[in-house]
Design a protein around this nucleic acid. Structure first.
Lengths: 90, 90
DNA sequence: CCAGTGCGCTACAATTTATGTAGCATACTG
DNA sequence: CAGTATGCTACATAAATTGTAGCGCACTGG
């Protein structure tokens, strides 16, 4: 599954998630997810190649139309995970 | 996001995916996803701790009720990804 | 009794990936 | 021309993953 190859990498889905509301700068993303610039940049490159995000020089990294579709489909999963997480130990 | 911490690791979501139809044995999973036993075992332990999968000695690893919920929510995403993947280069 | 098989899983060295920190190059601003 | 923000790279260290071998246990057929 191509999607899992991409999203099953550390920070990939998390970056999409951070872009859910508005575009973010490289450094903003870095701070938000607390990963190294090396890794952030690697994931950004992959997500760009996958056409899920794009860099708009004026405002920063943002979701593409496809990125927003992906996010929209992911939302129910997020809602579910809130309840799920509460039931877990620790 | 707790869910992303868990699923944003290599093979985690893939394992859930492989269990979608029926239970699988340790070695079956290993062969199916072609990862090392070390990693498979690490992910299995995490998924078990997260109560998404469970080991039934009689039949192998299987999704829990919660695991099946997660999978169900993931399905639309999978459908979408088929179309998405086709539009990509390489 | 005991060799054979399937099971979940571990040991361990090698490789790949991520981290943390520093800094580059460019562009814009006062 | 100093200051700042931008995306991003270099590089050494640490962590995760891989590949291969094999352990310990239970069960099975001869």
């Amino acid at each position: 599954m191509r999607l899992l190859d991409l999203l099953g990498r550390r920070w990939a889905l998390r970056i999409v998630w951070e872009l859910r509301e508005h575009p973010r700068r490289f450094r903003e993303l870095q701070d938000a997810i607390k990963a190294s610039p090396t890794t952030v940049n690697a994931r950004l490159a992959e997500l760009r190649a996958a056409r899920l995000i794009q860099l708009d020089p004026a405002s920063g990294y943002r979701l593409t139309v496809e990125g927003r579709e992906l996010l929209r489909l992911f939302l129910p999963l997020h809602v579910w995970s809130e309840k799920w997480a509460k039931k877990l130990p620790t």
